[in-house]
């Protein structure tokens, strides 16, 4: 009777102890009856690695973190890795600590230095205390999510300050210059129309100069178109730093164009196509501006400017209609 009781209690107790001990080992992922290789890692900090986390090699779990201690010197942390079985690691083996999943568990991955050369691995100081037969590796902690967020914050701040600076650079002055350029264009078209009107009155008297005038106007228009194309390209490329400088040049050129036009008062052979393409360029720019493309979008909010652009487009339209309606008014010149 008593012997049976003892047997009963003994077996239940033993069963529980075995369950607890082997269960713990099993849940830790420890294996039995095989050798273990101990490897140490010295690092400045270990992120969120904790005892019992897995050690992986080429993505395969090969062991676990045995112990994490701060070195006596206080400047480094020693991580003990226990690898199942015998392992001989590469000479340039290092350890990367990184999150294993999004749920906060970490892992230690054994890699070679050459695989991720960009990381700043901790170096094992030569005076470090060595345990017989245990390799000591360097390592690197991948920033965890919170650290990445911090970095992203920093980047965003830099961008913000850049934008601020750009805003300052692309301020009233630039807008004014562009406005002026467009005003110049208005003058230019006005001049063009006045010219056409004058031409229709006094075209007979100027027949001699037609050829040279035509070519001159053509070249002027070509210049103008080039300028507009440059604005277009600038807007497209978004190279905003140079816009400031270039806008000045372009506006200067454009004002020159209107002067040239009035000077080259004569006939306009071939001007139609040139004017057309210039107009197209201009149109493209205004479309871009209207769409708020590039950082010039803020110009759109300037209603005064917008109305001017509109008016410009209207006048150009008028000009074109006039050209089409009374081609002889312009074209005849070239025929002669």
């Amino acid at each position: 009777m008593k012997g049976r009781k003892e047997l009963l209690v003994g077996s239940v107790v033993l069963l529980a102890i075995l369950t607890a001990v082997f269960g713990t080992f099993w849940l830790q992922g420890r294996r039995f009856g095989s050798t273990e290789t101990e490897v140490h890692v010295l690092m400045r900090d270990v992120g969120q690695l904790s005892v019992g986390n897995t050690v992986t090699f080429r993505g395969v779990s090969i062991g676990r973190v045995g112990d994490i201690t701060v070195e006596d010197s206080g400047v480094a942390v020693r991580i003990q890795l226990l690898l199942d079985g015998d392992w001989i690691l590469d000479d340039d083996a290092v350890v990367v600590l990184a999150p294993a999943s999004m749920f906060g568990d970490w892992q230690a991955e054994i890699v070679t230095r050459s695989r991720f050369p960009q990381y700043d691995y901790s170096e094992v100081p030569p005076d470090v205390e060595l345990v017989e037969g245990v390799r000591v590796l360097g390592g690197y902690v991948l920033p965890d999510l919170s650290r990445l967020t911090a970095v992203a914050d920093e980047v965003a701040q830099n961008v913000a300050s850049l934008t601020d600076r750009f805003d300052q650079a692309f301020g009233q002055e630039t807008a004014d210059q562009i406005t002026r350029a467009i005003t110049n264009m208005e003058e230019f078209t006005a001049t063009l129309r006045r010219l056409a009107d004058e031409q229709s009155v006094q075209f007979l008297g100027i027949a001699d100069d037609v050829q040279s005038a035509t070519s001159e106007i053509a070249s002027v228009l070509a210049t103008a178109r080039g300028s507009l194309e440059r604005i277009d390209a600038l807007l497209a490329s978004g190279d905003l730093d140079s816009i400031l400088v270039n806008t000045k040049i372009i506006t200067a050129e454009l004002s020159g164009v209107s002067g040239d036009i009035s000077a080259a008062s004569q006939s306009l052979s071939g001007t139609l196509t040139l004017a057309d393409s210039t107009f197209l360029s201009l149109n493209r720019i205004t479309t871009r501006l209207e769409n708020g493309e590039g950082s010039l979008g803020r110009l759109i909010s300037d209603t005064l400017l917008a109305s001017r652009v509109e008016r410009l487009v209207e006048e150009l339209n008028l000009l074109m209609e006039d050209l089409r309606a009374n081609p002889q008014k312009y074209v005849r010149l070239s025929i002669f």
Partner: peptide, 15 residues
């Protein structure tokens, strides 16, 4: 999943 967050301290804690 079982192993993911297991630490031996859990067992000590329970005991």
């Amino acid at each position: 999943g079982l192993r993911l967050f297991f630490v031996p301290f859990d067992v000590q804690f329970a005991v």
